[in-house]
Design a protein around this nucleic acid. Sequence first.
DNA 1: GATGAATGAGGGTTCATTCAT
DNA 2: TATGAATGAACCCTCATTCAT
Lengths: 187, 187, 187, 187
Amino acid sequence: MALSSISDIRRRELRAAAFRVLQREGVTGTTLEKVAAEAGASKGIVLHYFRSKAELFEQVMREANLVLRDRVVARLAQAQSAQDRLRAVIEGNFEPDLFNAPVCHAWLSLCAEVPRSPELARIQRAIHGRMHSNLMSGLRPLLPTDQAMAKAMQISALIDGLWLRLGLAPNSLTPQQAVALVMRLLD
Amino acid sequence: MALSSISDIRRRELRAAAFRVLQREGVTGTTLEKVAAEAGASKGIVLHYFRSKAELFEQVMREANLVLRDRVVARLAQAQSAQDRLRAVIEGNFEPDLFNAPVCHAWLSLCAEVPRSPELARIQRAIHGRMHSNLMSGLRPLLPTDQAMAKAMQISALIDGLWLRLGLAPNSLTPQQAVALVMRLLD
Amino acid sequence: MALSSISDIRRRELRAAAFRVLQREGVTGTTLEKVAAEAGASKGIVLHYFRSKAELFEQVMREANLVLRDRVVARLAQAQSAQDRLRAVIEGNFEPDLFNAPVCHAWLSLCAEVPRSPELARIQRAIHGRMHSNLMSGLRPLLPTDQAMAKAMQISALIDGLWLRLGLAPNSLTPQQAVALVMRLLD
Amino acid sequence: MALSSISDIRRRELRAAAFRVLQREGVTGTTLEKVAAEAGASKGIVLHYFRSKAELFEQVMREANLVLRDRVVARLAQAQSAQDRLRAVIEGNFEPDLFNAPVCHAWLSLCAEVPRSPELARIQRAIHGRMHSNLMSGLRPLLPTDQAMAKAMQISALIDGLWLRLGLAPNSLTPQQAVALVMRLLD
DNA sequence: GATGAATGAGGGTTCATTCAT
DNA sequence: TATGAATGAACCCTCATTCAT
């Protein structure tokens, strides 16, 4: 892997800072100034690395997506059976450091911008598309295609719904409870 | 029923206008000026009837909540059995004039503000609380309490997730499909 | 004396209410809505009786001026000697229900508008003019004209300065102390 | 002395511009836009350097206070006797470039806000406190303490009253006349 | 006479963005 | 690369004033 350039490092830091601010303040309350302050940098630097606030948000969402993907991929790598693969996908979506109220809030807040930003919509489609194909790879061996697709949608929407729930009501769910509620769909 | 005063009428009009703007523009893009224009009124009048933008949003969310509640109540009134009641709650949450992309977007957008507004949070809690008790009244006759509660959470979160999905991806779901996906949880 | 018309009564009430608001809030913080609320009336009524906010302030200042004048006149009526007349003028300017922090604040606040309003300036000139002639009527028997005029200015300015002081620093002066400080100029 | 940073320079310029607008328009008529225009800058820059309009006014008053203080200090440095010190304080308060109608108006206008702003009140107390101690340092050698204190208050209030007078009635007093009226208190 | 609905101008403030250093 | 000065648009909100009832 190539060494990270200074630029890459800065960008990563700023994305991380932005995500932390999003957790606290939501999209509405996130300003470039707060992001800069969170990163311990000056105000101008943010737009030096990201062409605009919109681009920053896009990259934050893209990065968050990659983090989520890597978690699922790591679990999938261990999976042996179709059942394992389903469990991997589901548990990967409820890792404790992702499935907590501030992160869910940040995520929810970004989602609310999706209908207003083609780029965010693109990322969102990728997320749902990957979720769908991951689930289908586990469900196809177990169910006829049409039932598998319905089940995949059910699981996917339930996962989203549980994230939404935690974003709206902190402490209303633990990762374990969430996993259990989704796993029960597979009986 | 008491006659509506001018105030009540105006307030209702402005709430409706605000909700239409929210559908198009989300919370981020909704300004008092756009709301006023949508209502065919001047900017000042909005704050003549609502103390602040925040209060307007609160009342919009409260009203939207009441609309949803009334739909469910109307269906519940026809229900005879526990099964009927469950179907009533579920179908009431997917009425075609509510379960469509713009409305889901508006709703999602308001939800994203919940963690930043105690008042919105209060309304949100009421919604989830009512959903929970409605579901429990149908589930308790059918299941042991702990299973009923889990099932209620599952249904509730799935409904939320389907709304979220439609908000993010217009045309990805019809009301009938959504109802079917939730009803399948009851087999 | 003619009976007061309803109009006269309303106007008096509104002037009084406005003066109370001015005491609390100063010119900067005084709005027609607060004046109406203070008078227990509706917002529109204020401009029904006064053509504009400026006119209301003018009439308030004019009325306050008349109150002050009457106090001095009442004391002058009792005066027998030139010395008495001077004391009457001075003590009349420090009546306890006029010489207190809120009233001084209101007065100061109106004075700050004098350079921006020809009408207020007119009233202000009348006040100073009357003060001057009142003082001169007491001083002329005692001093050569030029000395009398200087002394009048000294007294007049000191009275103003003491009002200003109490407006700026509540509790810094009692009426008695103020009177004593001015009377000492006459030794 | 350290070199002035751009910040310091801009802040000074903006304070000066604000004070000029205050002279013309009073607190009531002074807007950030007018201040910016007076400084030949954009409206945004004013709040870039001062957090709010209130803070701008505070700093203007503080600066005006320092100017006045420096004038008095410069004169005090030349004083040899207690009499000299008193004269220094008095004449320092009537320097021709300070004791003129527009400046007095601006000052009066700021004073009218004192009861509504704890910070302005603080500055005002400092001004009166310094005036008091300056006067006392000249009066104590000449009078018993209680008489000295009364005299100090008399002088201080008369100075204020003469400033007020010039603010209300331009051309009514020259600096020389004002000084003479105050000095006469020392005979 | 009295109310309060309605307007619209304007104010303070925030903030993304540009630019000079 | 990095800073922060500077701009200007836009926003929320206030308020005097007008008007219809």
